[in-house]
Design a protein around this nucleic acid. Structure first.
Lengths: 158, 158
DNA sequence: CGGTATTATCTCGCTGAACGAGATACTTGT
DNA sequence: ACAAGTATCTCGTTCAGCGAGATAATACCG
């Protein structure tokens, strides 16, 4: 288990980036009187909307690791603040789909837009091979962080 | 504000990585009966230890965005679980330095070690120019995420 | 040296996010 | 139609974190 070596600098840098991005979200939450979970919920809802999928209360709770009581409280909170609407599903009337209000989207854009814009600009400064390296590294880390309970399988040559 | 364009894929990928790393930490917390804040605290303490700096209760609380009452509760919790020790500073006896227990370090290593190891291996597959691109991108994002309004968060020593 | 301000941590009472258990409402299978 | 299954909500509780202020040690100033 290497505690030093030239690669560790990048490992710590990556962790610092994750911390900064978390802090950036937390600032958005605090400025708008929200809890970090509320921001995560809005992001999950917007991701679903971008993918063209409807998000039910249950799926939202699962995505965030909340139980049903917590999910109800979360959606209540977001609805009370005007960030989302509850819409009963017409086909299965047990279901409640949660839709993001346009104003919440605009609010999110006004906060995250500058960071996204600067990131895009940063990316424009790299050529294809560099972009492939960045993409490959991020993809690898995402997979490594997701593979968790599993056995760490030995180096897969390739 | 670009919602499409080839760079957006990487922006979403970066966000996904941040989410996965957060989930990875949350899993560590839950498996060990801790809260996300407790894990953040241990990481801050280990970072300080690595840098050779002593971490006082107050500095820890500031680093995590907690007020003094919350900081006391946090250190109580960590101490009760045996993860840290309170040590009165000899020079300034108002201060309490918080030291991580070796067993907590070992616990952290056993969880984060595999992810770190896989990340290091991943990095070994890149040449200098690719590594420079990855480093430059991460550094740029860290700075962009840190630079926003810079709102001073209200602390209790008013 | 004495007194007052300042700093670091802790105590107390409270709010609210999230939990477990169970109720309610709707759907599906027989 | 009735039982079983599924989605959400209600109720009561726990505990992280906050605000206010107490306590204890140090620094400043005459």
């Amino acid at each position: 288990m290497p505690d030093e070596g030239p690669e560790m600098e990048l490992v710590h840098l990556l962790r610092a980036v994750a911390v900064e991005l978390g802090a950036h979200s937390a600032r958005f939450a605090q400025r708008n009187g929200m809890h970090p979970t509320d921001v995560r919920a809005l992001i999950a809802l917007m991701d679903a909307a971008r993918a063209g999928e409807a998000m039910t209360a249950g799926r939202l709770g699962t995505a965030l690791g909340l139980n049903s009581a917590g999910t109800t409280a979360l959606v209540d909170r977001l609805e009370r603040a005007g960030h989302v609407r509850r819409v009963r599903d017409g086909r299965d009337r047990r279901r409640v789909t949660v839709e993001v209000d346009e104003r919440a989207v605009a609010l999110g854009r006004s906060h995250f837009g500058p960071l996204i814009g600067r990131t895009v600009e940063l990316l424009r400064g790299y050529d294809e091979r560099e972009l492939a390296a960045i993409r490959g590294f991020l993809t690898g880390v995402r997979e490594a962080a997701g593979d968790d309970g599993r056995e760490p399988h030995h180096n897969d040559p390739g």
